[in-house]
C-alpha cells in the first residue's frame, strides 16, 4: 500500500517582513518552505512504508503562483522531504492556484490521490495558515475516515492504531485503511538528511503537473492587515539589583503586581 504525504509550500513566517506603520506585508519577498510539521509527517511515512510494503510519495499543490522563484523553492522543499527517504514527489503548480481555497485544493488533490494511495499523512496545520482544514476536507472528498492530532501510529494488519492528543485527554482509536491522518510535532523527531542523501534525492522522480482549478472557490481573502501589537519596548538598564527594582516599580505602575 502506498502512502501520500501532503506537503504545502508555506511562507516562512519567521522571515516574513511586515511594516507596522504602512501595514504592508511583503509576501512576495518572503521565502517559502515545507512546514516543520510536514517533516514529522514525512518521517512517519518513511517509518510506516516499510511495514506497509509500498512507496511513500510527497504531494504538493502549490498556491504560491508559478513564478520561477516559487517553482525553484517548491522543488527545493520537495528535495528536502525526498532526501528524508520518500520515493518520489508530485508537484502541481499553475497560474490561478493562488485563488484556490481549501475547497478547491481538496478537490484537486483528491483526483491525484484516489485509487492510488491507501493512506494520507498530513500536518495538523500548515506552517503559515495553520487551519488544519485541508486534510479534513480531503478525507470528506475521498469519503475516507479522518483522524487528526496523531502522536503515535501503529500498523496492525488492515488497520492502524492511532494515539491522538486532545486538550483534556489522550485517545487511542482504531481505523481501517484507506484513511487520512494528521500528525503533531510530538509524533517523532524528523531525521536530518546527509549530504549524500540530498544529492541522491535530486535524482528521485519529481513529476510536475499543471494545475487548473476544478471548481470555483467558496472563500476570498478581502484584505490582509497587520495587527496592531503595541509594545512599549522599554529596556531596563542598570546592574542586577537596580534592574530588578526598576522592573518591579514599572510593573506596580502598570497595576499588574
Amino acid at each position: 500500500m502506498d502512502i501520500a504525504v501532503l506537503v504545502k509550500q508555506s511562507l516562512d513566517v519567521q522571515e516574513l517582513r511586515v511594516d507596522q506603520d504602512t501595514g504592508k506585508i511583503y509576501i512576495e519577498d518572503a521565502p517559502t518552505k515545507a512546514g516543520d510539521i510536514e517533516l514529522n509527517a514525512t518521517e512517519e511515512a518513511v517509518r510506516l512504508k516499510e511495514k506497509l510494503g509500498g512507496k511513500a510519495i510527497a504531494i504538493m499543490l502549490s498556491t504560491g503562483g508559478a513564478s520561477g522563484k516559487r517553482q525553484k523553492e517548491a522543488r527545493e522543499a520537495l528535495t528536502r522531504v525526498l532526501a528524508m527517504g520518500l520515493d518520489g514527489a508530485v508537484l502541481i503548480m499553475g497560474e490561478g492556484a493562488e485563488k484556490g481555497d481549501t475547497y478547491v485544493i481538496a478537490k484537486a488533490l483528491a483526483e491525484e490521490i484516489r485509487d492510488k494511495f491507501g493512506l494520507v499523512l498530513a500536518a495538523e496545520g500548515s506552517e503559515d495558515n495553520f487551519s488544519g482544514l485541508l486534510p479534513a476536507r480531503l478525507a470528506a472528498e475521498l469519503g475516507w475516515p479522518y483522524v487528526a492530532y496523531a502522536t503515535a501510529i501503529e500498523v496492525e494488519g488492515d488497520h492502524v492504531k492511532v494515539t491522538r492528543s486532545l486538550e483534556d485527554f489522550e485517545e487511542v482509536v482504531r481505523v481501517k485503511f484507506p484513511a487520512v491522518i494528521s500528525v503533531t510535532q510530538e509524533i517523532n523527531k524528523p531525521r536530518v538528511p546527509k549530504l549524500v542523501e540530498i544529492v541522491k534525492a535530486k535524482k528521485k522522480p519529481l513529476d510536475q503537473k499543471d494545475f487548473s482549478p476544478p471548481v470555483e472557490p467558496k472563500l476570498t481573502i478581502r484584505e490582509l492587515k497587520v495587527p496592531k501589537v503595541e509594545r512599549k519596548q522599554i529596556v531596563i538598564e542598570g546592574d542586577v539589583e537596580e534592574a530588578a527594582e526598576k522592573l518591579i516599580q514599572a510593573l506596580k505602575e502598570e497595576g499588574v503586581l
Binding site: L16, I25, D128, K218, I221, E223, P227
Partner: peptide, 13 residues
C-alpha cells in the same frame, strides 16, 4: 494568519 503576523479578512459564501 502567517503565525500571527497578519489578520486575514475573509468573505465567505
Amino acid at each position: 494568519t502567517f503565525g500571527g503576523k497578519a489578520i486575514a479578512v475573509e468573505e465567505m459564501s
